[in-house]
């Protein structure tokens, strides 16, 4: 499903070149649950951005379902992000002054789906928040907010869910609940890729990819 080979991405940081990715090969099959681990600055966020089609590699090839992503223009990449990938962030990134339902429905509106509202209700039911759909984010607890964010990631029914430190802003008990939810989604056949620096979180994933200095040092 995800076939990335020889990914290279460099940044200039304070006049110095940083090789965030230095020839990374990653292959992830459908239905896998993978943790991407490594210390900060190892390139895991850059890898996630490229897999999530927010960024393009300078060199190497990234095929998503056999389609080369490097050659797509901005609008097509937005379309891929909209339909095939769901994002979950560490700090939830819900839009303020918008109900949970409207937040969840947003990707469906960008995808011009006529049944955005119904889809959003279903997604909220899936994460167990159908009784909070008219609350605004600031009326919800951290765990509830992250559930809303997961519902938003699910509303377009994407094959892949990318989570960047999804439990980083939560206490450990709520974090466990969120991880359980990810496992449940994985059980339904969805591919989950999770970036984390926390070994306890990574332990929930059958497969772990270790990055260090822009290279894969361990995969399995």
């Amino acid at each position: 499903m995800i076939a990335a080979t020889g990914l290279v991405k460099r940044y200039l940081l304070g006049g110095q070149e940083v090789r965030a990715l230095d020839g990374v090969d990653v292959h992830i099959g459908a239905g896998e649950m993978v943790a991407v681990r490594g210390p900060s600055g190892c390139g895991k966020s850059t890898l996630m951005n490229i897999i999530g089609c927010l960024d393009r590699p300078e060199a190497g090839s990234y095929r998503l379902d056999g389609e080369e992503v490097a050659g797509l223009d901005g609008d097509r990449l937005a379309g891929v992000r909209n339909r095939r990938i769901g994002f979950v962030f560490q700090t939830f990134n819900l839009l303020p002054r918008m109900s949970a339902l409207d937040n969840v429905a947003l990707p469906a509106h960008y995808g011009d789906l006529p049944d955005a509202g119904a889809r959003a209700r279903r997604a909220l039911a899936q994460v167990g928040l159908d009784d909070r759909m008219h609350h605004q984010p600031n009326q919800l607890s951290g765990g509830q907010r992250q559930r809303v964010a997961i519902a938003r990631a699910l509303v377009m029914d994407p094959a892949i869910v990318l989570a960047d430190e999804p439990t980083g802003a939560l206490d450990s008990r709520t974090g466990e609940e969120i991880l359980a939810l990810f496992k449940q989604l994985n059980g339904q056949g969805r591919t989950i890729i999770m970036v984390t620096h926390d070994p306890a979180v990574a332990a929930h994933c059958p497969r772990q990819i270790h990055l260090r200095d822009g290279r894969v040092v361990e995969d399995g």
Binding site: R81, F87, Y110
Partner: peptide, 16 residues
């Protein structure tokens, strides 16, 4: 800015 980033991540095109 952050809101714009989120909107783009969930599929908003530049023209949106």
């Amino acid at each position: 800015t952050r809101e714009i980033g989120v909107r783009k991540a969930i599929g908003a095109r530049n023209r949106d």
